[in-house]
Design a binder for these strands. Structure first.
Lengths: 178, 178
DNA sequence: CTGAGATTTTATCATTTGTAAAATGAGATG
DNA sequence: CATCTCATTTTACAAATGATAAAATCTCAG
C-alpha cells in the first residue's frame, strides 16, 4: 500500500530497531501486547498451546509483520506465543501509538486496512487449501512457495504448520524423494 | 466499529436494498465483483470449485457481510462463488463507491479496517481449530456456536464446511446422538 | 575425536477418514 | 396412492494418518 511521504515519515519516526536472540519469546500468550514488529532479518513462528502440545499456525520471515492478533484487533489477551527461530533484527512500533495514528491519519488507516485485508486473503487461502488438499500436496506447496523454510525450520515445527505429525511428514518426505 | 453520524449517513446514502431467490449466485468465481452486501435476512455460502468438486469455506447469516474477497482487496478475479441458501434480503453497496469513501473519510477507512481485522481473527481461529481439533470436535463446536446452521443448511454443505465428507459427518452425527 | 543430546527416520499397529454403492426417508407430483 | 427425485444414512472395504517405540543420524561442546 503506497503511503505519502508525510505519513511514511510519521510512521518511521515512531519506529525503533531492536534485536533478539534465537529462542526469545517476543510475544507471550494470554497477555495483551499491542506492539507491532516488522522483520528486517530472521525467522519467526506463532504457535498456540493446545493442552499438552502446541500448534504452529504461522511462520514469518524477512518482510513479514508480527502482531498478537487478538491484542492488535480487540485489545484482549492473545492466544499465541511468538518465538524467534533465528536471531532477528526487527523494527518495532508501539501499538498504542499506531492506534492513535489510525485515527489521525487517513493514509495510515488505509495502510492498516490493506494490511489486514491481505493477511485475510492469505489466511483464507490457507484454510481452503487445508480443506481439500492432502498432506502431501500441502508439503509440495510449501516446498514450492517457501523452500527456505525447509532449510531454516525444524521439521517438527513444519509438521505442525502443515497440520500433521512429524512422523507423517517424514513419511511424505521419503515418498517425495522417490 | 462505531461510526459518527455523518459518516454513517454517507454510507447509508449509497446503500440500496435488493432481494434474490434461494439458489441465486450473487457472486461468481473468476469475475471481478467489487460489490459488498450486508445480509438483512437469509443465509448464504461461499464455495470454490476444486476440480470436480466444490469446497464450502464460509457460511453467513443475518448480520454478515458478503464480498468476493480477492475482488474487494486486490481488484482481481475472485476464487469463490457465493450462493443464496435461502431467499435473501440484502443491503448493497457498490465497491467502487466504497473504495472512494475509504480514501475520503477516515472513519469509514477505520471501519473498513476493523471489518477486515475481525474477519481475519475469525478465519485464523478456524484455521487453528482445523489444525488440532478432530472432525467430531469441530461438529460439536458448530452445534454450539451456530445450531441454526444444522437446521438451515444441507448436510453435504455442512460436511464440506467442516472439511470432511458427508459420510464422515453422518457417522459423527450417529455417534453424537449416543 | 568422542559422547550426549537433539533431530530425523523406520517400523508396527490402531484409528480415522475416504470411496463407492446400497438402503432409507421425506417431499413433490401426477 | 404410486412413483419419482433428492437428501440422508448405512454398510463394506481401502487408503491415509496417528501413536508409540526404537533405530539411525546429526550436532556440537569438551
Amino acid at each position: 500500500m503506497p503511503l505519502p511521504a508525510s505519513s511514511k515519515a510519521t510512521l518511521t519516526g515512531h519506529i525503533k530497531e531492536v534485536s533478539f536472540k534465537k529462542g526469545h519469546l517476543i510475544i507471550k500468550a494470554n497477555k495483551i501486547d499491542q506492539n507491532i514488529y516488522f522483520i528486517k532479518k530472521g525467522l519467526v513462528r506463532a504457535f498456540a498451546d493446545i493442552g499438552e502440545s502446541e500448534v504452529t499456525f504461522w511462520i514469518g520471515k524477512e518482510g513479514a509483520t508480527i502482531i498478537s492478533m487478538r491484542s492488535y484487533v480487540e485489545h484482549k489477551e492473545g492466544y499465541e506465543h511468538i518465538e524467534l527461530l533465528e536471531d532477528c533484527e526487527l523494527y518495532q512500533l508501539e501499538g498504542t501509538i499506531l492506534q492513535e495514528l489510525f485515527l489521525a491519519d487517513i493514509h495510515i488507516a488505509n495502510w492498516g486496512r490493506k494490511f489486514a485485508e491481505l493477511e485475510l486473503i492469505h489466511t483464507e487461502e490457507r484454510l481452503i487449501s487445508r480443506q481439500f488438499k492432502t498432506a502431501t500436496e500441502r508439503y509440495k506447496d510449501l516446498l514450492q512457495n517457501n523452500p527456505d523454510f525447509l532449510q531454516r525450520v525444524q521439521l517438527n515445527v513444519i509438521a505442525s504448520y502443515l497440520g500433521i505429525t512429524q512422523v507423517s511428514l517424514s513419511r511424505i518426505r521419503a515418498d517425495v524423494r522417490c
